[in-house]
Each structure stands twice: as C-alpha cells, then as structure tokens.
Simulated assay, not measured.
Amino acid sequence: MRLWSLHPSSLDRMALVACWREGLLAQRVLTGATRGYTRHPQLERFRAVAEPLDAIGHYLNAVRAEATARGYSFDGARVLRPDAAAPGIPVTSGQLGFELAHLRAKVALRDPSWLPRVPEIATPAPTFVERPGAIESWERGVPDS
C-alpha cells in the first residue's frame, strides 16, 4: 500500500489509479470492514488524527479531483466522507523528498514521457502539511544510514 504524501498532480497514471484503489482499501481498514492491512504503517498518520475517516475522505477527494481533471471517472460515491475538511496531517520534508525520488525512479521505468511532469520540488497532497524533518518513522524499505 502506498498512500502518497505527494500532491496527486505529480503522480503518473499508474500511481494515481493505484493511489485511488489503495486509498479505498485504507478507508475499508479504518471502518473495520476488512481484516487485512490493519497494521499497515502508512495508516498510522490517519489514525493519529481525531477523525480518521474524515482524513481518508479528504485524501480520496483530492485524488479524485486530480483524476477528474485528467478525464478519468473515479466513483465519488465510494468516498464515505466526501465533504471532510482538510485535517492538516503533518508530513516531513524528508518524507516528501523520499517519495519524490521513489516516484521519479518508478516513472523513469514505466512512463518516461511523464517524467518531465514530475516536479523538482515535492509538494504535499492537500491532506498534509509539510514540516521539517527526516523520513517518517512509518516508512518501510529505507536503507539504514
């Protein structure tokens, strides 16, 4: 599961579609509708806010808005809390940089024509607020330094 902290406009087609699908799975996990992925580390930040379902609803709406702008048809009826306010979940600049490098590496292999559209400087998704810091503790697959 990859719930990108990056602004959805940075994501290529495959990342955007996967983000939508995985965001819907995260919503199911947060409602208790599935037994899988309940301990997934990326959900920690959504669980840390007062209203996790509002947070994932806001996140999914941001992904859907980008998809709509590109002419895709993501079913907004699947978002349980579509009118949720931005929760302002903190995300570190180190995490954003890590994700941007990760996205660039993926895009370079699967869709090089999209690479010029990936920004040089990471911008957070509307659900998140950037703060200084290293890669988040919940991130997996980070080489030891």
Rank of each mutant, 00 (worst) to 15 (best):
R104L: 02
P119N: 06
A85T: 13
W138A: 14
S93L: 11
G71Q: 09
D83S: 13
D111C: 02
P90S: 06
V129K: 02
D111A: 10
A62C: 15
E136V: 00
R78W: 05
A67R: 00
V79E: 08
L53N: 01
D54P: 06
R117C: 01
W138G: 07
V79R: 09
I121K: 13
E120S: 07
A65I: 01
P112Q: 02
A55S: 11
G94R: 10
E139L: 10
E130C: 14
L53T: 04
W138H: 13
P112K: 04
Q95M: 12
V107K: 09
D54V: 11
P126G: 05
Y72A: 03
R81S: 05
P52N: 04
R81T: 06
R117H: 08
V129S: 02
I121G: 05
R81G: 01
T127D: 07
A108G: 04
A55W: 14
P52H: 06
A62D: 14
V79S: 09
G97E: 13
E120F: 00
P112W: 06
R131Q: 15
E66R: 00
V107R: 07
D83H: 11
A108P: 02
P126N: 07
F128R: 05
H58K: 14
P132N: 04
P87A: 13
A67H: 05
A84F: 08
G71R: 04
S93N: 01
A69E: 08
W138I: 10
G97S: 14
A122T: 05
A55Y: 11
I89C: 11
A62G: 15
L109S: 10
P82I: 13
E136P: 00
Y72E: 10
L100P: 05
P52M: 04
G133R: 13
R81L: 03
D83R: 14
A125G: 06
P90Q: 09
Y72N: 02
F128V: 07
D75P: 07
A84C: 13
G71L: 10
H102G: 01
N61A: 13
D75M: 03
L60R: 04
I89R: 05
V129Q: 01
G76W: 12
A84V: 09
R81D: 01
G97M: 02
F98S: 08
S113T: 09
S113L: 11
F74R: 10
G71M: 07
R70E: 08
G133L: 12
P87L: 14
A69S: 15
A105M: 05
R70A: 01
I56S: 08
L80W: 01
R110G: 03
P132D: 15
T92Q: 03
L100G: 05
R81E: 02
W114N: 08
L96R: 08
P87D: 15
G133N: 09
L115T: 03
T123S: 15
T92K: 00
S93I: 01
A125N: 11
R64S: 12
A108H: 02
T127M: 13
L80C: 00
G76F: 07
G76H: 09
P132M: 03
T92I: 09
A85H: 13
S113N: 00
H102A: 04
N61H: 09
E66N: 01
A105G: 00
A122W: 05
I121C: 09
P126K: 03
R70Y: 06
G57Y: 09
R78G: 04
F128G: 03
A55M: 10
